[in-house]
Simulated scan of single mutants.
Amino acid sequence: MSSIPSLGGLSTLLVAMSFSVACGNPAVQGTETDSDTGSGSTATDGTSATTDDPTAGTGSESDGTDSGTASGTESTTTTTTSPTTTDSTVTATSDPTDATTTPVTSSTGETTLDETTTLDETTTTTTGETTDTTTDTTTGDTTDTTTDTTTTGEPPLECGNLPVIYRDMKPLHADFGCHMWGNGVRPTLVQSMLGGDGKPVYNPQPGPTLPGYGGSNPQISSGASFSDWYNTKDGVNMEIAGELELTEIQQGVWSFESEEFFPLTGQGFGNNVTQNWAGETYPDRNGSFTTEIHTNFVYEAGQTFSFSGDDDVWIFIDGKLAMDIGGLHPPAMGTIELDLLGLTVGETYSLDAFHAERCEAGSNFRIDTSINCFIPM
């Protein structure tokens, strides 16, 4: 991939986008319809947009309960073997890498053996007419060494699932409940750096829209309404802790996917029995909420992090905006190529992700990444 021209002074990043039906009109997420089905993608410093096959960026359907994978340091076994002497009819062999009993085989033709062979305090007696005699011996003392450190002497990383803070929002919040609409990504709704509180900062003057974009203006009512999204406020939202379990779907790729991503169903303020701004109710789900993730990872060359879904998604690496697919929109996909961010191999960096589902009719959420270890903060 090639980098996208700068937009709004944000960092360089590659993003590919794909759209499919989220709810209602295939081209629209929200309460309005628009004949223009334009699509767009935005990463930091990105202005170009592509429209892909609607099936791009999708995989096997998951209910979001796939188990994660664990990584660790494999132990090393060391064996010390002492020399063994036997009579001419038994040949003892030992594998220096084997810490367990080693079978020993002798071939004597039609010879009858009636004897006892002793090898290092382990005795096996073979009696009677035998053509092939097998003697089990233990040769020497066994040393089993297990190490809990890496080759550098440091403790192994404690990898885990992605910790999540969900916040349930009421369907008649100024920014939720299908109050707004859009047919594609709306970039630069937040500023390019995390705030001092570790949250995205509202941008009162977002940059230009992407070609073909159609949607309500504004996409966020105000800085005051946006402060409700990722800050717990009594009576305004309700905080609920959770986690996302990533599964290795192919070698070196870990994923979480849900095409019906409603993790707060039956929780918080309850399912959406109250009419939203579009006059709709959804008693089978709780569909107005935000998702907040804070974690760390060790950067290795070639790593990527992809997201596909709706609605708003902002991902910050080392405090800088690295993926910007904000606004109400059908499912859209973005990919961060970490090699383009100027990171140092072997160093630990923060990853902060913020998501919002603002129209209860549909919710898609998928992560694919080659980062194999997320370190709890």
Results as ranks from 00 to 15, higher is better:
Asn296Thr: 13
Asp228Ile: 05
Asn25Thr: 12
Asp141Gln: 15
Leu14Asp: 15
Gly24Arg: 06
Thr116Val: 12
Thr47Leu: 14
Met323Ile: 15
Lys199Thr: 09
Cys178Gly: 09
Gly309Leu: 08
Pro187Asn: 07
Asn25Trp: 03
Thr81Glu: 12
Ser227Asp: 12
Thr31Gln: 05
Val236Gly: 00
Thr116Arg: 13
Gly9Asn: 14
Pro218Ile: 03
Pro218Leu: 05
Thr335Asp: 05
Ala92Lys: 06
Lys170Gly: 00
Gly140Arg: 03
Pro103Thr: 11
Asp45Arg: 13
Asp352Gly: 04
Glu257Arg: 09
Ile249Gly: 00
Thr348Asn: 06
Thr111His: 07
Pro54Asn: 10
Thr31Pro: 00
Thr33Glu: 08
Leu194Gln: 04
Ala16Val: 15
Thr369Gly: 02
Gly242Lys: 01
Trp277Met: 00
Met333Val: 04
Thr127Asp: 08
Thr304Met: 12
Asp63Leu: 13
Gly327Ala: 11
Asp352Leu: 01
Ala92Ser: 12
Thr85Met: 01
Tyr349Glu: 04
Val164Asn: 01
Val298Gln: 04
Leu162Tyr: 05
Thr146Ile: 13
Glu259Asn: 15
Ser71Tyr: 09
Leu341Ser: 07
Ile249Asn: 11
Glu243Ser: 15
Tyr299Pro: 13
Glu61Trp: 06
Ser192Cys: 00
Asn271Met: 00
Pro103Lys: 09
Gly334Asn: 05
His355Ile: 10
Gly214Tyr: 03
Ser39Leu: 10
Lys233His: 04
Thr274Pro: 00
Thr47His: 07
Thr143Val: 13
Ile220Lys: 04
Val104Ile: 14
Gly198Cys: 01
Gly38Ser: 11
Thr101Phe: 10
Lys233Cys: 00
Ile315Pro: 02
Glu257Ile: 08
Asn161Gly: 14
Gly342Val: 09
Lys233Asn: 03
Thr247Asn: 12
Glu337Ser: 14
